[in-house]
Design a protein around this nucleic acid. Structure first.
Length: 415
DNA sequence: TATGAAGAAATCACGTGGCG
DNA sequence: CGCCACGTGATTTCTTCATA
């Protein structure tokens, strides 16, 4: 990246460009943020006025331990030795929208992408090395699966989560997501904590975010790979896909910022818009975006954490596009430029507009709920205490749930 | 069965860095 | 310099599990 200009490496010096870290420069003047403006509006303060006696807010800190910091240099040296820097030579592939780094001769082929899919795949360094790490983690879990002590895995591991789930009775109350419950039907391993089936009666399909019917069970086999548990994903028209964790590629670094119209085509195979492709394939089967939480949430470590925000944005966009032609969509989601000419909103402003519209709608519904429902109906329990909901979005969701309005919106969020 | 604790999920707000 | 895409932390809400 910086081969033409070594001095550009200097911008990578820690703290040099992260203005939110380190000591604040009192001389630096910047445009007031939206939150500052709102505060000034709320408290009738002149610009720059701060709330009296406001506690000093700590700035972002480097919370890494000394051991973690010390480990960085050897890690970096090892990576540099293993993957020496090479000058980038752009390749002329068949699909110009996909760029595969020449640095990674051993990386697996890019996720299958249909010809119509214009989303940009962006392999990163993390993507290249995450395969190594992923293999290591997979192996760890395979080894862990052979032990009868789930505690040894620690509370954060997926297998220990399965073990925890195994104590849930099949009739346990649930949200609309598939409930993974205990199965003791496996006669060969009755106490196996990884043997899980799904209470299919709780699975509800919806038009925007259908929930996968998924089951998970051990398979018999001789080697460690065959011993790893499998999961079966039920897609549209009863199509079943069975796979192991090692079959799941890392979440593709895909962006629809430049191709929002493509989202409905890769979102849901129950939808007439589905075009049979997806940036994620498992065992050569394209996996619609709507199933990604099911694929990644219970497996693949913390990878879902990195995907969920993006996935949530996609969900919002698909929901906004459903029931509306793209022409109408762009008419609605346009904004005038300085000459008064209307232009379709860009990705971030579009999401901001959708959030704002959602907020207004939720506040209206929340007002309605406060009039129609009792306080008791708008509470939730945390520990022994009952709390009254305060967020309009949550009150609106509660109202919809109670009234059976637009369940599609609220019952699908894998809670 | 009730309760406390912990953690997951949804959402919001804001910072960073690239780009024109 | 402003806009944009994207990532991350914080808060609120909700669910699950262990224990008495």
């Amino acid at each position: 990246m910086f081969s033409q200009d070594n001095s550009r490496w200097e911008i990578l010096i820690p703290g040099a460009t992260n203005s939110h870290k380190g000591i604040r420069n009192p001389n630096k003047k910047s445009k007031p943020k939206g939150s500052e403006l709102r505060r000034e509006n709320l408290f009738n303060g002149a610009p720059g006025v701060r709330i009296a006696n406001a506690p000093v807010t700590e700035r972002s800190k480097d919370l890494r331990t000394a051991e973690q910091k010390a480990a960085i240099i050897p890690w970096a040296q090892r990576i540099v030795k293993q993957y020496p820097y090479q000058t980038h030579t752009p390749e002329t592939g068949t699909n110009p929208s996909i760029y595969i780094s020449p640095l990674a001769p051993s990386i697996p082929p890019a996720p299958s992408v249909g010809p119509a899919l214009q989303a940009t795949i962006k392999p990163t360094v993390a993507y290249q090395y995450s395969n190594m790490i992923g293999e290591f983690l997979t192996r760890l879990e395979q080894l862990s699966a052979t032990t009868t002590d789930p505690i040894a895995l620690g509370p954060g591991t997926s297998l220990s989560r399965m073990a925890q789930s195994s104590s849930v009775p099949p009739s346990a109350p649930s949200s609309s997501t598939p409930v993974i419950s205990a199965s003791t039907s496996n006669s060969t391993a009755p106490s196996d904590p990884t043997s899980i089936t799904v209470d299919s009666s709780t699975v509800e399909l919806s038009s925007v975010t259908p929930t996968a019917d998924v089951s998970m069970h051990d398979t018999d086999g001789d080697n460690a790979n065959m011993d790893s548990p499998t999961r079966t994903l039920k897609m549209a028209h009863g199509k079943l896909i069975t796979f192991r964790e090692c079959d799941i590629p890392d979440p593709p670094a895909v962006s629809y910022a430049k191709s929002i119209e493509e989202l409905p085509r890769v979102w849901d195979d129950n939808s007439p818009d589905w075009n049979g492709t997806s940036p994620l394939s498992i065992n050569n089967t394209p996996i619609p975006l709507v199933y990604w939480p099911t694929v990644y949430k219970y497996w693949k470590g913390t990878q879902w954490k990195g995907v969920k925000k993006t996935w949530f944005d996609w969900k919002i966009l698909v929901r906004a596009m459903s029931g509306m032609s793209m022409e109408d969509f762009w008419v609605h989601f346009s904004a005038p430029d300085k000459f008064g000419q209307l232009h379709p909103l860009k990705y971030t402003p579009l999401l901001a507009r959708l959030a704002a519209e959602r907020k207004v709608a939720d506040e209206k519904l929340a007002d309605l709920a406060r009039h129609e429902l009792t306080t008791e109906q708008l509470t939730y329990r945390k520990g022994a205490q009952l709390h009254v909901m305060t967020k309009p979005a949550m009150i609106a969701a509660c109202y919809r749930r109670l009234k059976g309005i637009d369940v599609d919106d609220e019952g699908d969020d894998d809670k």
